[in-house]
Design a protein around this nucleic acid. Sequence first.
DNA 1: TCTGGGGTCCTAGGACCC
DNA 2: TCTGGGGTCCTAGGACCC
Length: 424
Amino acid sequence: MQCLALVDCNSFYASCESIFNPYLLNKPVVVLSNNDGCVVARSSQAKKVGIKMGMPFFQIKELVKKNKVHVYSSNYNLYGNISARVMSVLKELSDDLEIYSIDEAFLVLNKFSARSFYSRSLNIKNIIHKWIGVPVSIGIAPNKTLCKVANFLAKKDEAGSQVVSLMNKKEIELALKILDVQEIWGIGARISDFLKSNQLYTADDLSKKDPRWIRQHLGVVGERTYRELKGEVCLNLNSGSSIRNQCIVSRSFESYITNKDDLEKRVVSYATRASEKIRSEKLQVKSISVFIRSNKFNKNTKQYHCIKTLSFINPTNHIFDIVNKSLEALQSIFQEGIFYKKAGVILSDLYLENFYNNDLFDSECKIRSQRLARLNKTFDLINSRYGGGSISIAKENYERLHLTKRTNLSPAYTSNFDELAIAN
DNA sequence: TCTGGGGTCCTAGGACCC
DNA sequence: TCTGGGGTCCTAGGACCC
């Protein structure tokens, strides 16, 4: 039987903030999303005072004040850096791994007896804490879904080791009995409501249901979850190297935009950033979507949400191609009289560079492409050496992504020489 | 006054083909 | 007058995840 371990960093963003500011340890800490909009991470002390995930910041201001909660704007540069450190250590300590998200990885633990899975995981947990300063929880099980169950239980075990193993039938059965259906990985709000309306309250209830009923009401995705709860392996480990399917750059605006010119600046900025991202991964795009939308929370204004997709004949990653196509898409969906609150650029249908041949009927194509590639390279080089936005497309007017509100941003401890932490 | 951003996978339905 | 059935491919939208 295969043995997987899911390593999940506890309150990751909040933990990252405390690494360089140990004063925050054991204090209530929250980290906010872009524009300081809502809560995206909470230390366990912040959870205890009643702050929920995803709550808008303006709704918890009282709680924050009353409980002296430390509030941080998100510092993605820092979190990305710490994540890379954690993942590189995990890579050394496992036989294989899948980096599942910024703060989670599935590890393959072979070559050891069942009894040693637990002690090996405990060792991993201690090393990550000692070397990097991030506390983690580990769930051990024969497949991904059960690893998630084990990890859920490990997270609850705050006073204990925070390592839980579900490698035998009895352990699994016990765990499923106490797990609410809505805590199952892959079961969201909609489906859990549906399950409860059918008198299925725990993972154990679900796992005892007729498979045909599951297939009919929950589809193939639900069936996989169901089978994994019963111990089968349906979800394979994805240990990397495969290219991503899409690249999104989108932002909510700090205030409403009604003017087309202002909206164009934003779209140019997002398209620029998206093109930089795919170039850095040596990818090219064939299909571009632009979406714009009004504020979905404000029912008093006219609601509008529209997305337009356009394609290139041949894939490209040149900034001008991507920016111009995005503007063309925006042009076709822009409507006057809307209070726009968010826009985004989505690049899909991605290929590795040089996957496509040049256009047979366009003899200039290759020369143009090579010229533009040099231009893009220079563009990227200038921005990487002198900072993002040092050079940008004139239309953008150097708006970039800088207009987001980040009132309580911590220093760039790991990426700016002038902001290194100082030990006194 | 103030409500994130970036992903994945699946399905239904339309367009088109023979 | 009477107009089928079986495919494929693509896209938009839904549900979920962190």
